[in-house]
Design a binder for these strands. Structure first.
Lengths: 242, 242
DNA sequence: TCGACTTTGTGCAAGCCTTCACAAAGTCAT
DNA sequence: ATGACTTTGTGAAGGCTTGCACAAAGTCGA
C-alpha cells in the first residue's frame, strides 16, 4: 500500500510469499517469545536484542530473527526490538488481543487443577464453563463457576471457542464429538489416545506418559552408552558437570 | 550377523546407517504406536496391519512403516505385525522394560493431580518420591508417600531417574538446578518458562498457555478467513460438517 | 506347484526447517 | 559529517522429515 517505491522489478519478500502467512514451526515458538517478553516488560526494560531474547526463550538468535521476520519488520538495526511493540505484535498474530472463552470438560484431579490454574486470564483466555457428567458434581461450585453437563452447555450455556478435555481416556472421543457438534473447532486434549475429528477442527494433545517415554528413550540411550549392564545406577552419587 | 548372503556389494540399509539409531521425529511417535497397540492386545487381537494401526495412532501408514523400519523388521509381508511382539519391541526401544523411578516436585493442584494420575505404573514409570518446600505439606502423606524436601531427597531418598517439575514458575529453575546436582538427567517441566541445564540433561516442557495460544492462532486464522468483523460469533449455532 | 493377492520395507524425490553468511540500516563518538 | 560499530533481515545451503512408488516377500486357494 505505502510500499511501492521506484519502478524496479522487486522480488516479493519471503515474509509475504507464504500464502497462510507464518510457518507452523514458527507458530509453535511465538508463545515462547511472548512468555520471555513479559518479565522484561514487568522490569521496565523497553528494548531487547535478538541474542538476549533468544537466550531467554531457549532458541538461537538467528532462528528468533527468522521467526519474527515472518510477522514483519519490527526491529531496529543496531538497536534491537521494542519490548512492548514486539509483544503486542506477537499477541496480535496469535489472536490474543481478545479473550477466548474456554470450557473444561472433566473435573477429576487434572480438570480441577486446570480450572484453578492462574495462567489463563491475562494471557488471552477465560474459563467460562466447567462440565462433568457425574451427577454428584454437576451443580456444585468450582472456582466460582457452577458445573454443568455438556448437554446443558450446548443448550443454554455461554458461547465457547476452545474445549479442554480432561476426562478419562474412554470418554474423550465422545466428548470431542459433542464439542464439535456444538461448533467448537479448537480442542486441547489431555486424555491419552488419538481423537478423530473433522478436518476443520484443530486438536492438540498433551499426554504425560508420552512425554515421559520420550525422556526415557534418551535416558536409556545415555546410560547404555556408558554402562550397559546396570542402567539404573548413578543417582545422587554421580559426578555432574556444570 | 546372519545376514551376509552372496558376495555382491550390498548397500548398508537405512536402518543401520544412522549412528544414534532412531530419528527424533520417530521417537516422538513411538509412544503413540505403543498406546494404540495396548487396547488391541487387551482385546485379544494378535495381528494388525500398518494401515489399521496407523489409523488408530493418527498417522499415515507409510510413516508408520518407515518409523518401524528403524527398529528392525518385525512385520510379515502380506500379513502385518504381531501385536505383542511389536509392543515389546517398541517398549524395549523406549527403555520401558524396566520401571523408571520418578520424583514429582511441587504439590500444588497440578502436582497432586499428577501424583494421583494412574497412567504411570504399567507404562514404565513409578513415582518413588514427592517433594515440596512448604513446611505445612512436608511430612504429610500423599498417595501413600510421605512428602519430603529436595534436600532430604538428595540426602537420604531413593534413587531417582526422572524429575517432574510442577512448581510455580519462579521456583522452577532453582529446582531444576538441584535435580541436576543430584544426578538427574531427565526433566519434565510443567512450569512456564525456559529451563537452562547442562547439555547432557534432557528437558521437555509442557505449558498449558503455549498450547492454547497455538490453538488460538489457528482458530483466529479460520475465523478471519470467513468473517473478519466478529471473530467470536458462531458457537453452537454454527453449521458443522461431518 | 503355481498364480493371484496382500502387505511390508525402502530408495528416491519433494518439501519444510534450521543455520550460515552477509548486506542493509541503524547508533554513537568524534 | 564521517567512520567504526552494532544488530537486524534475508538469500541460499544443508539437513531432516514426509510421502510416493514399487520391489520384495509372504499367504492362500486351486
Amino acid at each position: 500500500m505505502s510500499r511501492l517505491r521506484g519502478a524496479r522489478a522487486e522480488v516479493v519478500p519471503e515474509s509475504v510469499r507464504r500464502a497462510g502467512g507464518v510457518p507452523e514451526a514458527t507458530v509453535g515458538r511465538l508463545p515462547l517469545y511472548l512468555r520471555a517478553l513479559t518479565p522484561l516488560h514487568d522490569q521496565g526494560i523497553t528494548n531487547v536484542a535478538s541474542e538476549e531474547l533468544a537466550a531467554l526463550a531457549g532458541v538461537r538468535s538467528t532462528q528468533l530473527r527468522k521467526d519474527l521476520s515472518h510477522l514483519g519488520s519490527y526491529g531496529v538495526r543496531g538497536v534491537g526490538y521494542d519490548v512492548d511493540l514486539l509483544a503486542a505484535q506477537i499477541a496480535q498474530e496469535l489472536g490474543l488481543t481478545q479473550e477466548w472463552p474456554v470450557v473444561i470438560v472433566g473435573l477429576g484431579n487434572l480438570g480441577r487443577a486446570l480450572a484453578s490454574y492462574g495462567g489463563f486470564s491475562g494471557r488471552g483466555f477465560r474459563i467460562v464453563a466447567l462440565v462433568d457428567d457425574d451427577p454428584a458434581v454437576v451443580g456444585t461450585q468450582v472456582e466460582g463457576l457452577t458445573v454443568t453437563t455438556l448437554a446443558d452447555l450446548a443448550d443454554s450455556g455461554p458461547t465457547v471457542a476452545i474445549g479442554v478435555i480432561a476426562t478419562p481416556a474412554p470418554a474423550a472421543q465422545a466428548v470431542a464429538d459433542q464439542l464439535v457438534a456444538m461448533g467448537i473447532r479448537s480442542i486441547l486434549n489431555f486424555a491419552p489416545g488419538h481423537l478423530t475429528v473433522p478436518d476443520e477442527v484443530g486438536v492438540r494433545s498433551v499426554d504425560l506418559a508420552t512425554e515421559l517415554q520420550i525422556l526415557a528413550f534418551h535416558e536409556q540411550r545415555r546410560l547404555l552408552s556408558v554402562s550397559p549392564e546396570d542402567p539404573l545406577r548413578g543417582g545422587r552419587d554421580r559426578e555432574v558437570a556444570g
